[in-house]
Design a binder for these strands. Structure first.
Lengths: 343, 343
DNA sequence: CTGTTAGCGCATTCAG
DNA sequence: CTGAATGCGCTAACAG
C-alpha cells in the first residue's frame, strides 16, 4: 500500500535533475521561474507522489504556522458541550476556515502554553483560563494574543459591557423595593466551592466578568432601593447543571426564600427554574428568574427565560477577525435584552 | 515588556559555557548527566527565561508532534454545534488531555489533509468526510488513522452495528402490517438535495452508515409484512433542523400521510415531531416517530423520543484510546434502545 | 559523563 | 532564471 518513496524537496529535486531551490520556487514563488518550467515540475511531482514541501519544516523555517490555539477557560472536554462556548467556537471556526488557518483547541486547565506555543501563530483566549499560571504565561508570550471576556493588559480584547448588561436585566427583574433578591454568581470566588459569598468586598478586585456583573446587579439594587439580605449571593464554580442544581436547591430551600434570582448564566437560570418547578413553585408568581448569555434552550423552555443575549457567534467572528487583522485594541460588542416569563 | 533575549538551545548553552547536547539532555534525558549538573542548568535556564527546547524544531527532528487531528465529517463551524459530535469530541478530549496530546480540529470539507498532515501524529476521523477527496488522502496517509462510523479498509475503526440497531428500533415502531412507513434518511444520496430517493437500489452501495440503517429498516419492514409505498424515503443532506424541517413539512403534508416515521437522527426526528405538533397532529395517536443517536433533548421533550442510544462520549473515548494504543482492529460498540412516546 | 558532528526538510541569500 | 551554501532549532550517534 505504501510502496511510494517518501519524497523530500531535496530528493525530488535530485530525481528531476534540478536544484532544490527551483522545486521550492515552483511551489512557493511562481514569479521566480518560467511558467512552463513550473508546470513541468509540478506535474512531475504529482506524478511521483510528492505533494509539496513538508509543512513542519516550512513552518520552522518561516516561523509561520497557519494555526491558532483557542485557549478555553476550562478543559476542552467540558467546553465542547457548553452551548455558549460552542457558539463562540462556531464564529471563530467560520473565519479561520475562510482564512485557511487551523484551529487547535487548548485547555484552560493545562499547565503550560509551552506545549503549543511553538506550533501556532498566536492565541485566542475565550474567558480567563482556569489555571492562573496560563494567564501569566500569555502575558509574556511573543505572539499574537486576542482575549475574550477578560483582559491581560496587552494586545487585543473583545467583550461586552457586563456591568451595564447586568444592571439592565436586574432592573427589569426587580419590580419593587420589597423584592428579596438572590444572586447566583458564576466564579465569583477563586476556589471550587459551591457556597455563599460571605464578604462581598473581598470578591476578586480584578475586573473579572463575574465582578462586573455583580457590580451591575448591585447598582440596580440600590437604584431600586432594595437591600440585599445576608447569604443571598452564591458562588457557583462552573456553568454546569450539576453544579448549579446544588446551589439552586439550597437557595430555593432557604427561609425566607428570595423571590428574584439574578443568575450569571442561562444554564444556572434554567437549572434553577427546573428545580423550582419540581418544588411546585410557579414562575413568575412565586419567583422570578433572569439569566445571562442568551442560549437557545432559554427560548424554547416554558416560560421562556428573560436574559441578556450575548451574540456569542458574533463574538467569535470578531475575535478571530481581530486575530487575523493583527488588531491591537479593545472592542466592546453590543448585547441585547430578551424578555421572558419573569419580566 | 519583551526585553528578554530570545534564547535558543545553542545560545543558552554558549551562555552557560556547556555544549548544546548537555542542555538538551538536561531537558530530555535526565539519565545522561549528573543530577546536580541538570538542576544547575535548569535553574539557570529558568533564571534567564529559557523555557525549554523549541517544540517545532523538536518535532521536526523527532517526527513526533503530540498532536492529533480530529477530522470532522463537516465544517468545524457546523460540527461544534451538533450535540452528537460534541459528545464524541468530549470523549476524545478527555483521553487526549490525559495523554497530553493536543487536539487539532479539521474540517471534513477541507480540500486537502496536506495543510495539517505534517503537524500531527495521525488522525481520528469522525464520520465520512463530506469531501470525498479527503477519504482518498486518508487512505494514503503514512500516519495513524482511526475512523469512526465509517471505514477505509485500513487501520483501526470504531462504530456500532447500525443495521441491527435500525432493525430493532423499526421493529418497535411498526405495530401492524397496515402501518404506512416513511424513512427520513440522512445522507442517503451523494448530493446536497432534500428530495425523495427514487431508486432505492442505486443508493450508495458502499457500506455507509445511512445504507446500513436503511437495510435495517427495510428488513424490519419485510419482517412485519409492511410494504413501503412510493416516495416514502427521503434524503436529508445534513442533520440540522433547517434541512430537516423542509423535508418534514413535505413528508407530513403528503396524501396519504405515513403514520410511522423512521428518522436517521434525533435532530431529524425532533424537528419532524415539532412540525407535526404545529400542524395539530398528536403523537402517538396520529403518527409515531423514532430517531437515532440518543441526544439529551430527546429525553427532555414531550413526549420523549424513542431512539437508538449511541453512547457517543464512549465512542470518542474508545476512538482516542485506540489511537494512543496504536490499535489496528475494528471495534463494534454496544448501543441501547430507548423507549419513548411513540413506542 | 561531556562535547562534536551530522542531519530533520526546508527557504533564502547571493553568485553566476 | 539557476544552483551552491547557510541556518531555522533541535536531537541522536558517536567519540572522547
Amino acid at each position: 500500500m505504501f510502496e511510494e518513496k517518501k519524497w523530500t524537496l531535496k530528493s525530488i529535486a535530485e530525481k528531476l535533475g534540478v536544484s532544490n531551490a527551483t522545486v521550492s520556487n515552483a511551489f512557493n514563488r511562481p514569479d521566480q521561474l518560467s511558467e512552463k518550467r513550473r508546470k513541468d515540475i509540478l506535474a512531475a511531482c504529482a506524478e511521483l507522489g510528492y505533494s509539496g514541501p513538508n509543512k513542519a519544516a516550512q513552518s520552522l523555517r518561516k516561523g509561520k504556522f497557519d494555526t491558532v490555539a483557542l485557549v478555553l477557560s476550562d478543559s476542552v472536554e467540558y467546553m465542547v458541550s457548553d452551548p455558549v462556548a460552542s457558539h463562540f467556537m462556531k464564529g471563530v471556526a467560520s473565519v479561520l476556515a475562510r482564512e485557511k488557518i487551523n484551529l487547535l483547541l487548548f485547555s484552560g486547565s493545562a499547565e503550560h502554553v509551552n506545549s503549543v506555543v511553538d506550533f501556532v501563530d498566536g492565541f485566542i483566549c475565550y474567558g480567563r483560563p482556569r489555571n492562573p499560571l496560563l494567564v501569566e504565561q500569555l502575558k509574556q508570550v511573543r505572539k499574537k494574543v486576542v482575549t475574550v471576556d477578560f483582559d491581560i493588559q496587552r494586545n487585543a480584547s473583545v467583550g461586552i459591557d457586563n456591568q451595564s448588561a447586568a444592571h439592565e436585566i436586574a432592573q427589569l427583574a426587580i419590580q419593587s423595593s420589597d423584592d428579596d433578591v438572590a444572586i447566583m454568581g458564576l466564579r465569583l470566588l477563586d476556589h471550587n466551592a459551591i457556597c455563599y459569598v460571605e464578604d462581598l468586598d473581598s470578591v476578586v478586585t480584578e475586573a473579572s466578568v463575574a465582578h462586573q456583573r455583580l457590580k451591575g446587579y448591585l447598582s440596580a439594587l440600590s437604584f431600586k432601593d432594595v437591600t440585599l439580605k445576608k447569604q443571598r449571593v452564591w458562588n457557583i464554580p462552573e456553568s454546569r447543571s450539576e453544579c448549579a442544581s446544588i446551589a439552586a436547591k439550597q437557595a430555593l430551600n432557604a427561609t425566607p426564600r428570595a423571590n428574584v434570582f439574578l443568575c450569571m448564566s442561562d444554564i444556572i437560570a434554567l437549572t434553577l427554574m427546573n428545580e423550582a418547578t419540581k418544588m411546585g413553585l410557579k414562575i413568575p408568581s412565586d419567583i422570578r428568574v433572569v439569566g445571562f448569555d442568551g442560549i437557545d434552550e432559554g427560548v424554547r423552555c416554558n416560560p421562556p427565560l428573560a436574559t441578556v443575549h450575548q451574540f456569542s457567534e458574533q463574538k467569535g467572528i470578531k475575535a478571530a477577525q481581530m486575530f487575523v487583522d493583527g488588531a491591537n485594541h479593545e472592542e466592546t460588542l453590543p448585547y441585547g435584552i430578551r424578555e421572558g416569563g419573569s419580566c
